[in-house]
Amino acid sequence: MKQTRLMMGMPITIEIVDPQATAAVFDEVYDYFAHIDETFSTYKSTSEITAINDGTLVLADASAEMQVVFAMCEETKKETNGYFDIKTPNGKFDPSGLVKGWAIWNAAKLLEKKGLKNFYVDAGGDIQPHGHNADGKKWAVGIKNPFNAIENIKVMYVNTEGVATSGTYIRGLHIYNPRGGNAPVSDIVSLTVIGPNIHDADRFATAAFAMGVDGINFIERLRGYEGYIIDTKGVATMTTGFEKYTIA
């Protein structure tokens, strides 16, 4: 069974291969995402994060999951030399860069707890697979062409690894620096990270993307993570262990 719903401004797709999947299971997972949105959406006036940002709720009095998320954000900030930072320029907190991957991971764990073994949860292109696909094979996950959204430029094969892509299209412009000869300044449009789970893959993808061309080196140095970065010229650079995921 497979379902897609538009939530939190993005398509969330769940496919469950196991025959015991029921409509109620899907509802439960989508209800969890709705709860996450209600709690962590910075533009919902009724959300808990908004109460924190408005100063009407202190973190110490917030829900356990809010405190866990803040602790994880602080940890990620340290691990990424400050590149991951939930403090916005106007002094508010926006943990959504971490919450998305964490929520996908929790949704997958929810399915596991129900005894389901073969499924994936995909929220806006960040994916947590588990087990195998309907053909009994590894899940085949494409990397979207940042220059042509209907095309895939790479296929990765995974069982339980999380796959996250950070990207932007405005960087699909060459910017030439007149002081640096005619060489275009190299910049990146897409960075995909494969990690032990979507939560970790996503938070490191977010931070690594903010590092620009150096992001792939950051991923290269992380044990247990592989990355695939695409620059403005359509040239990809991959970490040394990436290609093992391209074998079906």
Partner: peptide, 18 residues
């Protein structure tokens, strides 16, 4: 490094910044 090129292989899902 490599130049990116379209892949025709079937996929279950797609990772990207959408």
């Amino acid at each position: 490094q490599e130049a990116i090129a379209a892949q025709s292989a079937n996929v279950n899902t797609v990772s990207g910044a959408t």
